[in-house]
Design a protein around this nucleic acid. Structure first.
Lengths: 144, 144
DNA sequence: CCGGATCCAGTATGATACTG
DNA sequence: CAGTATCATACTGGATCCGG
């Protein structure tokens, strides 16, 4: 999630918003868009090769490489290297990786139920703003 | 989450990883770290002023301003402007904003249960990598 | 003073080219 | 095929300025 932004966050004050500290930590780890999507994809297909993931997600080679390395480091993903020619590298979820799918599904359901509403709100807001701009920019009646 | 990365993502192929497309969309909207934290914070306290949020989250003025504008646009947050001196602007969640707390809580619980495990995995991985580097960098026995 | 808007510098991301 | 290196660009945070 654009949850990107892995390092920059200042430490939160302990006394404030107790939940935020915890949430903030988890988001720092597995909260970016690509991590989430890789986990979903592996949860759905079991085992995938590097380029299969790349094609599935429309992610750049660079980010996929970085994301997988992070996920392996965090113990969410297993990496299996087959030293054949051409090489073959397979990825699948660890148990912890699998368990991560549950909270993500919750997010998915919420998404399904609310995306339409968000789009409506967004259009309404944009229209309102546009009208305000039009109004302040040409207070006088149009010249015709 | 770092889900940041709001615009750059190429559209996903429809035929691949059906869930990913939906998840990807929601993450593009409310998936970045600050949006999530602002919603949590408002869910916890009900109504907060601009600088209260700023202090709670350790977010920069700039990002808070942008994040709140987005959340208002998406219909998750209400903004109330009191034209006093000094000005006073209050924010609280809409119904949709409130409903967003549920999936986020799921994430929070998962976090609570798994953060420690992640840290362990991370340390183990780092140590392994360090040893490999040490090995390849100085194949000979240390000079003592 | 508060809530922002603006400008600037550092970081993260994507596209492309290259290697084993 | 599975990455790594490089460069251009987008985004983020910090400092500064401003209207009320």
């Amino acid at each position: 999630m654009n949850l990107g932004h892995k390092k920059g966050t200042a430490m939160l004050d302990d006394k404030q918003c107790p939940d935020c500290k915890r949430i903030n930590e988890v988001l720092s780890r597995v909260g970016d868009r690509w991590s989430v999507l890789v986990v979903i994809s592996l949860a759905e297909y079991g085992t995938l090769r590097f380029n299969e993931l790349k094609r599935n997600l429309g992610i750049s080679q660079r980010m996929l490489s970085l994301t997988l390395k992070e996920l392996e480091r965090d113990g969410l993903v297993n990496r299996t290297y087959h030293p054949t020619i051409p090489p073959k590298v397979e990825y699948n979820l660890t148990n912890m990786g699998q368990s991560f799918r549950e909270p993500i599904s919750a997010l998915g359901y919420w998404a399904l139920e609310n995306l339409a509403t968000i789009d409506v709100a967004r259009r309404a807001y944009d229209e309102k703003v546009t009208n305000q701009l039009t109004y302040t920019q040409s207070p006088r009646a149009p010249d015709f």
